[in-house]
Design a protein around this nucleic acid. Structure first.
Lengths: 209, 209
DNA sequence: GCAAATTAATGATTTATTCAAG
DNA sequence: CTTGAATAAATCATTAATTTGC
């Protein structure tokens, strides 16, 4: 794969908080003394502060991903299908798929699986601490545990999907339709989209004191 | 920025453990019944197991990054300069710089800072639990704490670099020279390299039982 | 000296916790 | 209150140091 840059190189991004070139003062002929001086400057708090400054988000607006119903449906289906921590390629593919229903980035998919997995665990844990009561007759239940939740609890402990026979919730059928609708879109794929290197955007976050 | 794919589309990667297209049987005319059947199949353990199977690493060989002395020197300097959690752009720049001294990816830089930060914290914590003894006369010391370590301990608690006057270790001068040597390389930069979407490679990892 | 065995460092990943938008 | 986003902590796994027996 080769990547070409069609944009004018001078029209680079807004702010470059850390430019390694700034380590060397370019106007002075490369004397080591000068460079040391430049580094001394860098060590001062001014420099360190500059790299912590807030930077505009990549996507103008700085708003967070707001998933559509379709996107959530597909993601939940994949989760039920056994996917817990998709790898890079899987994330790309899922992102491409979900992009048909709204704006989305790879990191959104990545975070969704992390959060969903973690919060399922939480749910289970909270449930465990309450299930001491009716431990052996789960037919009568007082807490509002739906079929959905109890099913999730069953297959979360191990990564592999082991369930044999049970009726699927309607969300699956929903997703089948969505997938059907977009089959053609998949047929003519292999389109490459712009990728970001890392899912981290520490700019918009306050530091701990 | 525009990205073009020069490779033959047929010569794709080795294995695609999750191909969303496989949700739909393409050989049967798009009847919803068929798709549902396909999904049923997907729900079986066979599918879930297949997505967990080991996949060849992106970089042939599957070996982990082994940083050179120069790379470590620069990274430590940047850390001392106050950088703790570089953002995407910073990671790219640092990676470009370090690539002059050996093979490296962005995720290596990302992980290095995470680990270094965490292990500095560990060091401090361990030290704190031992420093109850000689709390107010740190000149005489029994443990083998070098100048390096004590300095690290000083500037880790807060993100900003606040130290005012102290002598720098020789590693800094080392790094200045390295940076000097590569100034020209920076002068003609803005070369784009192949990026990866996420630093995660869960393939090479054993699952918890 | 020098491999095999053991231990220490540290790169890479996953899980837990926290912050904050809506 | 829910949940997207991000960071910190814990854990796994591999490589380098180091030790050990010959």
């Amino acid at each position: 794969m080769m990547i070409t840059n069609n944009n004018n190189p001078s029209s680079s991004n807004v702010v470059r908080p850390l430019d390694l070139k700034s380590f060397i003062k370019p106007d002075n002929a490369g004397s080591k003394k000068i460079i040391l001086c430049s580094m001394k400057e860098m060590h001062q708090a001014e420099y360190a502060a500059s790299i912590q400054q807030v930077e505009a988000h990549g996507q103008a607006g700085g708003t967070r991903w707001n998933p559509t119903q379709e996107q959530i449906g597909i993601l939940e289906m994949l989760y039920k299908g056994g996917i817990r921590t998709p790898n890079t390629q899987q994330i790309e593919e899922i992102t491409d798929q979900l992009a048909n229903y709204g704006k989305i980035e790879g990191k959104n998919v990545f975070y969704w699986f992390q959060n969903h997995k973690a919060r399922e665990r939480q749910k289970i844990k909270r449930k465990k601490s309450l299930s001491s009561f009716s431990s052996h007759s789960p037919i009568i239940r007082t807490s509002p545990l739906g079929d959905e939740e109890s099913r999730e609890a069953a297959d979360d402990s191990d990564q592999y999907y082991k369930r044999k026979c049970r009726s699927w919730s309607t969300i699956d059928n929903q997703c089948f339709e969505l997938l059907e609708d977009n089959r053609r879109l998949y047929e003519e794929e292999d389109k490459i989209t712009t990728l970001e290197l890392f899912p981290l955007h520490p700019e918009g976050r306050q530091m701990y004191s």
